Simulated scan of single mutants.
Amino acid sequence: MASIESEANRNHYAAITANAGKMTSLQAISDFNDISWTTLTGEPGGVDYIEVDAGGVRALWIVPKGADERRVLFYAHGGGFFGGSIYTHRKLVGHVAKAVGCRALLYNYPLAHQAKHPAQTEAAMAAWNWLIDQGFDAKAIALAGDSCGAVLTYGVLQRLRAQGRQLPAATLIISGWFDMALTGASYETNREKDPAFAKESVDWLVTNFIGDRDRLDPEVSALYADLSGFPPVFLQAGGDETLVDESRMFAERARQAGVETRLDVFDGMLHSFQMMAGRAPEADDAIGRLAAWVRPKLGLPDAGGKIADNRAA
């Protein structure tokens, strides 16, 4: 049964939907979402935030006290390419980085009403190239993201592979958006459970992001990408969200491609419920699972203090 604290996430989405029709501009809706979203997350404490210019991209170094300085989470924030920023997500990523025991680089990108695809993936690549230029080893980096951050995560992976470059150690995806064609059955089966992401609303987000471009383009719909050779992936989704079947379908495609894959679906939870980190037990449990899974991939100690051998990751 969902905790009382977790209802804040459902209330957030219900408020966004209720207020959207009353606002006169896309920017006003986006701002309302961001202000409401930010308050969901508790402060992790013991985490420093340092703004940097990452190859022309605004980014935040998120550095927990005592964190391993050579391991990095490279994080793409969600928001449907309509909202969200390094500021809405800094506390969430602070919780994740603190649990893992490494630093994180959380980067911005243009929202869709500022620039259409592929501007967002180009920003992600600029930030990645900057990170590598700082001397970090790709095998000591895990890619991570929530919602539309999955688009950028797998866009970066596809571009790195096409360029013949080293891939990172692992991938963490929260409520991933993998299918711009919106073929998941959960758009209907969870329609009454999810107050925000009706198929019509997500269809609008697709058009806002890519216009009339091909919705099956693997760079925007990773469900249709060649996933062979990609790093291990841990997917999490809420059982009540309309996008949950996209994670299920992607997990199956990844397994078929030979990718080590884990999928955890959390009963009664909605989209990106991990934003309630530090306030809701479901969010803290999910982040603990992410951290326990990825630490060995990065060669960090597990919960018992044992150092994993990451050479084969």
Rank of each mutant, 00 (worst) to 15 (best):
Leu298Asp: 08
Ala222Phe: 03
Gln114Ile: 11
Gln166Tyr: 01
Phe250His: 09
Met249Thr: 10
Tyr109Met: 02
Lys199Gly: 11
Arg10Trp: 09
Ala54Gln: 02
Phe273Arg: 02
Asp217Asn: 12
Lys116Ser: 10
Gly145Pro: 05
Gly229Asn: 09
Gln256Val: 07
Arg161Ser: 13
Arg253Asp: 05
Glu7Cys: 11
Lys199His: 14
Glu241Leu: 01
Gly94Gln: 09
Gly46Lys: 08
Phe82Met: 11
Asp217Cys: 10
Arg165Ala: 10
Glu69Gly: 07
Asp68Trp: 09
Ala303Cys: 00
Ser30Gly: 14
Met125Phe: 07
Met276Lys: 08
Ala119Ile: 01
Ile141Arg: 05
Trp204Asn: 15
Ser36Tyr: 07
His95Asn: 09
Thr261Leu: 06
Ala225Phe: 08
Lys193Tyr: 13
Thr153Met: 12
Ala14Val: 11
Phe82Cys: 03
Ala138His: 07
Ala237Lys: 06
Tyr224Asn: 08
Phe136Ala: 08
Ile287Trp: 09
Ala280Val: 00
Phe136Val: 04
Lys116Asn: 08
Ala254Ser: 07
Val259Cys: 13
Ser228Asp: 05
Ala115Phe: 10
Phe74Pro: 02
Trp293Met: 00
Met23Thr: 02
Gly84Trp: 10
Gly83His: 03
Gly45Arg: 04
Asp240Ala: 15
Ala181Pro: 05
Lys199Pro: 10
Leu172Phe: 01
Leu111Lys: 05
Lys199Glu: 13
Ser147Phe: 08
Leu182Glu: 02
Leu172Pro: 05
Asp194Val: 00
Ala99Asp: 01
Val202Thr: 11
Ser201Trp: 08
Ile35Val: 15
Asp284Ala: 12
Trp128His: 01
Asp137Pro: 13
Asp240Cys: 14
Glu246Val: 01
Asp146Arg: 06
Leu298Trp: 00
Ala286Asp: 07
Val72Trp: 04
Ala225Asn: 02
Asp137Leu: 12
Pro231Trp: 06
Asp203Met: 13
Glu188Arg: 11
Gly155Phe: 01
Ala169Val: 10
Pro301Phe: 06
Pro118Ala: 09
Ser175Asn: 04
Arg253Gly: 02
Ile210Arg: 06
Gln166Cys: 10
Arg58Asn: 13
Thr189Val: 02
Ala196Asp: 04
